[in-house]
């Protein structure tokens, strides 16, 4: 299936989580922390660390490691304090 990362289409596999699909995509999917802007990637992949936070279909701060991909999903990488009210 196809999901979109920052508007770029990538192929993902049914059963993948958003985080797994992002890591497998080969794109630069590092987020920037809200505190210092430091770059991060998922650390635990089991819902514990919250370093996988992404915006999915406009909803921010989702745990990408717990959400399965779905056709046409729009993923945005979070850069610093997430914009609200989009």
């Amino acid at each position: 299936m196809t999901i979109h990362v920052e508007g770029h289409p990538i192929t993902a596999r049914e059963g993948d989580t958003v985080s797994a699909a992002l890591l497998a995509s080969g794109l630069d999917v590092r987020r920037a922390t809200a505190v210092s802007g430091a770059k991060r990637l998922p650390y635990c992949m089991m819902g514990v660390c919250f370093d996988c936070l992404v915006t999915i279909d406009g909803v921010g701060n989702r745990q990408g490691c717990l959400v399965p991909v779905a056709e046409g999903m729009q993923i945005d990488i979070q850069k610093g304090k997430r914009e609200i009210g989009k």
Partner: peptide, 15 residues
Amino acid sequence: MTAGAAQTMLKSSGL
């Protein structure tokens, strides 16, 4: 990453 993270990707996605 944690080893568990790698194991999750291996089991769930075959990565």
